[in-house]
Nucleic acid binder design. Structure first.
Length: 502
DNA sequence: GGCTTTGATACGGCTAAGCG
DNA sequence: CGCTTAGCCGTATCAAAGCC
């Protein structure tokens, strides 16, 4: 019998087939974006755990990848008789093994007892964390570790970085001892059934479903999907599919095709998606779209932000996962039809917020609508800047008041079959302006890639030449996003008489 | 009058989709 | 990961209608 790692047991909890594939066909797994190489700027949550739990630096960090499992188990057993913090200590029992992020000794007369802390970069305790700690404590205790308590440490998103490398308070602990210790029978059953699953000759027959994405994206999804008949018109193209009465119907009729959905269960928007997808015809209420935009005159502005966030803040006065704007692109359309594009991009590696706010105020003028796509995003960023920089607040809030959201107007009045139930700008643009293409862009083609590119640019070892290249790619991407809005506005407002290029 | 039923409306919790 | 918004749905609330 092989030893199943805690992560494999967690995979089993998500889907037995996933565990089977992990063990027997790992080559079928596709790496998610998160596991690919990325540029670590600042500290990881693990670094902070070292600082917080071992400020004196007396702890020992074990490394199973480098030294092998056997060696780490042996060293862990030895260290548990001493009294210094241990990081990545390993424990094995018959059939299962686990590594603990942090082990802290509590002195009680002779030999120490131990406090285990699992460190997570999420901002709250999730159900799968509870499973995680239950498995962890089961394995450790059955391996003979005198465990006094087990806690989960997660990020406190209300905490603000005071600067100077002081990260005390970033992590928030939640004690799960009672719960974890109370689930030992349950955990032993998971381990037993996981082994039964692994021992099977053939892979379990489980269809794709919600478990493929939640709580973690499964790398075998494409493989599993390839084993299933492909619906010509997948049901998931319908918007809000899991929130209305369709939910139960779909559960009772797996592998449902869009063609076979009962009309009486569809809301207006779902019905529109169904009929226009099947007919292949565009839906466009030009009159209503023009009506919605009628009130807004020229000059008009078109605005798009790019932001970055850090689980562990690197800039003083910012919070974990706070979205910090480092780039904007703005296009101005004057009364005479004159077109003007400007951009802001700070790749210095310093907090770009203040320059960003000042530059934004400078380029927005004092009047005219400012079109954005999904205004909640830009609006929230502007509001946050106003809170941080009180002297700029009046100007920033005046800009926020001028935002006009093209997203709801598009959603209410336009649908092209190629959108597949999505009204994101990237789904709408190819239909409205097929001559513009994100795929033709070098390097940066979406918001996630913009964040990666930003991190690479501010990474200390990145060379100047590469930084210049990234700068050009970011400018091109953000500019296209903004110009896409110009074209969309033109289309919705019925102003195809105007011509200009990006 | 006093009771229940029904239908309209308001509110809060929850999820999904959009942005990064 | 966070935030915002919209939509759905259950519950609460209340008035009108129906009934004895």
């Amino acid at each position: 019998m092989r030893n199943l790692s805690k992560s494999k047991l967690i995979a089993f909890r998500q889907c037995p087939k996933r565990l089977w594939l992990e063990v027997h066909r790992p080559e079928l797994r596709e790496d998610s974006a998160a596991t690919k190489a990325s540029f670590n700027v600042g500290n990881t949550v693990g670094d902070i755990a070292h600082q917080v739990y071992d400020p004196a630096g007396k702890g020992v960090l074990l490394n199973a990848q480098r030294d092998g499992f056997g060696e780490v188990f042996k060293r862990s057993t030895e260290l548990l008789n001493s009294s210094q913090p241990i990081f990545e200590a390993g424990f094995a029992i018959e059939g299962a093994l686990a590594f603990a992020d942090v082990m802290l000794p509590i002195k009680r007369g002779g030999k120490p007892v131990w406090r285990m802390v699992e460190v997570k970069s999420s901002t709250s305790v999730k159900d799968y964390h509870r499973d995680d700690t239950a498995i962890q404590s089961f394995i450790a205790r059955n391996a003979g570790v005198p465990l006094a308590s087990i806690a989960l440490a997660h990020i406190d998103s209300d905490w603000m970085y005071p600067g100077d490398g002081d990260y005390s308070g970033l992590l928030k602990e939640c004690d799960l001892t009672e719960e974890a210790f109370g689930r030992e029978v349950e955990v032993s059953e998971w381990i037993a059934t996981a082994h039964k699953t692994v021992a099977k000759k053939a892979e379990p027959k489980i269809g794709t479903g919600e478990q493929c994405a939640s709580p973690f994206a499964c790398g075998f999804f494409d493989y599993c999907q390839s084993q299933e008949p492909q619906a010509e018109y997948p049901i998931h193209w319908l918007p809000s599919i899991r929130t209305n009465s369709l939910k139960e119907y779909i559960a009772e009729h797996p592998a449902l095709d869009l063609r076979d959905t009962p009309d009486e269960l569809l809301n207006e928007l779902q019905h529109r998606v169904k009929s226009h997808t099947l007919s292949g015809e565009i839906y466009f209420d030009a009159e209503s779209a023009a009506e919605a935009l009628k009130a807004y005159k020229l000059p008009a502005y078109f605005l798009d932000f790019e932001t970055i966030q850090f689980a562990v803040p690197i800039w003083k006065g910012t919070r974990p996962y706070q979205q910090i704007p480092f780039q904007f692109s703005i296009h101005r359309l004057g009364r005479a039809g004159k077109f003007d594009a400007k951009a802001f991009l700070d790749l210095s590696g310093n907090d770009p917020s203040h320059y960003f706010a000042e530059s934004l105020i400078e380029v927005c003028g004092s009047m005219g609508p400012i079109y954005v796509y999904n205004a909640g995003f830009e609006g929230a960023r502007i509001y946050e800047l106003a809170l941080r920089f009180r002297h700029l607040a009046p100007d920033l809030l005046a800009i926020k008041d001028r935002l006009v959201d093209l997203h709801p107007i598009t959603k209410a009045n336009y649908y092209h079959p190629s959108q597949q139930g999505s009204w994101s700008i990237k789904a709408v643009l190819p239909a409205v302006a097929p001559d513009l293409s994100y795929e033709a862009l070098e390097g940066v083609q979406n918001g996630g890639m913009a964040m990666e590119a930003y991190l690479e640019a501010i990474y200390p070892n990145t060379k100047g030449e590469r930084k210049d290249e990234i700068e050009q790619q970011l400018l091109a991407y953000c500019g296209l996003d903004t110009f896409a809005m110009v074209r969309l506005w033109q289309f919705l407002a019925g102003r195809n008489d105007m011509t200009f290029s990006a």
